[in-house]
């Protein structure tokens, strides 16, 4: 039996990837909770009092108790559900993340998470055809301030 290329052509795969670009789901809002902030700080051995104590945080110029940035991942997992049924490849792997940090997230803030697929292209590597998709989550507080941007790169191969 000769090797047979199965699945869509490159053009069809690229057309599928192009179709992913744009907003993903609805905006989701989430409350920044003291318990969640404390839990994240403690599990990272980050004992900076700005994550525990409002007075200590205010003394350092913050509006209140400060969320450690990895808390973005709590909101990543609890606020966004999306799946892609790629018409090619066998596995989807997490490639890399890029962060922008802006206004700190403070306990009591209501964060709006807006998700979009911002880039999707087909590449040809040594191991064959590879889809690279970049999703972007923008985290904005109730004051309209941009807190963070998280770009997540997934590879489909």
């Amino acid at each position: 039996m000769s090797a047979v290329v199965t699945g869509p052509s490159d053009a069809e795969a690229q057309a599928f990837l192009d179709s992913l670009i744009g907003p993903l789901g609805e905006d989701v809002t989430t409350l920044v909770e003291l318990g969640a902030v404390r839990r994240m700080a403690l599990c990272m051995d980050d004992f900076d009092p700005i994550h525990f104590d409002e007075a200590a945080a205010k003394a350092r110029g913050y509006r209140g108790v400060v969320a450690p940035w990895p808390l973005l991942w709590l909101y990543f997992f609890t606020c966004t559900i999306y799946e892609h049924d790629f018409p090619f490849g066998k596995a989807t792997v997490h490639g890399a993340d890029e962060y922008e940090f802006h206004e700190p997230m403070i306990v009591g803030d209501v964060i709006t998470v807006r998700t979009a697929m911002v880039d999707a292209k087909l590449k040809h590597g040594k191991s064959g055809r590879l889809g690279q998709v970049v999703s972007e989550r923008r985290f904005t507080n109730q004051r309209g301030e941009l807190c963070a941007v998280l770009r997540t790169i997934l590879f489909r191969r």
Partner: peptide, 9 residues
């Protein structure tokens, strides 16, 4: 308790 009862809890 170290923090108030929270919706996510």
């Amino acid at each position: 308790a170290t923090h108030p009862v929270e919706p996510s809890e």
